[in-house]
Amino acid sequence: MEVILVLLIVAILNGAVIFIDEMLSGLVPMTLNADQYMTAVGGGSMVSVLFDILLGFGVSLIILKFLKKGFECYVMWTDGDPDAEPAYLVIRFIQAIAVAVCFPVMYGWLAEITQSLTDELMAAISASTGYNWQAWVNGISSLGLVTAIFGLVFVICYFVLYFQFLMRGLEIMILRIGLPLACVGLLDSDKGIFKTYINKFFQTTFAVVVQICLCKLGVGMMMNVSIMNIFWGIACIVLAIKTPRFLSEFMVPTGGGGAGVINNMYHSVRLVGMAKGMVK
């Protein structure tokens, strides 16, 4: 019975290895430019078309908000500080328009930097953890059922991580398309929604780099077929899956925006509760 299970798992691993070897290369461009892979057959990029639509809408909102804030502040004196220099509002208006219009170029630079950084990190990891998929499968098959099960768990986690990369690519695509609308927040002195939005954008991009490096490290550790290295390999791949949650614990915007208000309210309520406890 054990031999049959081992042979079944090895057959599954042999089928999965073909896909894994192809998927490991090209994860960064696929994640950062998901639209190009989704429309590879038809050609073109849906992001460019949708971005142009939202760019026109976002610029219109920026202009309307600029006129509204200027009228309420310097004509009606009902909003903001009328004594503040109008030049500050004009500078924020120009900044919002410039970021919205120039974002595709800036994103191209970000994608190139991310790709270059990831390539260097992957090369450094590969230098220390060379591997051969077929040799790994053969080694798994000779070490018994328990090791084969661990190998199967690793492959399942790998595919889960791959689908997470696909979702991360869709997240980045949505953030790219919606950025002109977020630029409306640049007209506010505290950057408004733009601060939280751009923080989420960089957090998602950085998560991709960390996940790919952990995945590469996990594969390298797993290929050295020994019980301890198998445990390290599974630990790396599981941490790669949990990377977005791990990063969100410290990559949180402080001050400004809705998140800052909520945090301030939360701490204020806690202080009031502690004061009541001390009085009692």
Rank of each mutant, 00 (worst) to 15 (best):
L181A: 12
W109H: 11
M221S: 00
G220P: 07
V261N: 02
L166P: 03
A16Q: 00
E249T: 15
T118V: 07
C102A: 15
R270Q: 15
M106Y: 09
F202W: 04
V279E: 15
L239T: 01
C213V: 09
K69Q: 15
V210I: 07
D81H: 13
G130L: 08
C102E: 08
L175H: 01
P86H: 13
A84T: 10
I230G: 02
V225F: 01
A240C: 06
C213N: 11
G277A: 02
I20K: 05
L175F: 02
G218P: 05
Q203V: 04
V90T: 13
V137Q: 01
A96K: 10
D190V: 08
Y131L: 11
V101N: 05
G258D: 12
P244F: 05
G108P: 10
N224G: 06
T243Y: 09
V208P: 03
L217G: 08
V160N: 08
G58R: 06
A87T: 09
A135S: 08
N264W: 10
N224Y: 00
T78V: 11
V209M: 05
N138A: 03
W136K: 00
L110Q: 03
V146S: 08
L13N: 00
C73H: 11
A16I: 06
L110E: 00
G139S: 00
M274W: 07
A96I: 05
P180T: 08
I18R: 06
V75I: 14
I20H: 01
S141L: 03
A275I: 13
I18H: 04
G26W: 02
I20E: 03
K191C: 00
K276G: 05
G257H: 01
I227G: 07
A84D: 15
T243N: 11
W77E: 13
T39P: 08
V17T: 05
F246W: 11
N132Y: 10
K216M: 09
G178M: 03
V6W: 02
G273L: 03
G258M: 11
G43E: 08
G44N: 12
V75M: 14
N33I: 02
I177G: 02
T204C: 06
K191A: 01
M167A: 11
F150P: 01
I174T: 09
L143S: 11
G56L: 08
M46T: 12
G108H: 13
I91C: 11
D190S: 13
R92L: 09
S25Q: 10
S268R: 14
M274F: 10
S128A: 10
G185R: 03
M1C: 05
F231V: 02
P244W: 03
G151D: 00
G70V: 14
A16D: 04
F103W: 15
M46G: 08
A275M: 15
A235Y: 04
A135M: 06
L170I: 12
E112F: 10
S142K: 01
S48F: 13
P86D: 13
F57H: 09
F19A: 00
M38D: 14
E120W: 06
V99P: 06
Y37V: 15
A275N: 15
L54G: 01
K69W: 13
F66W: 10
A11N: 07
P82T: 12
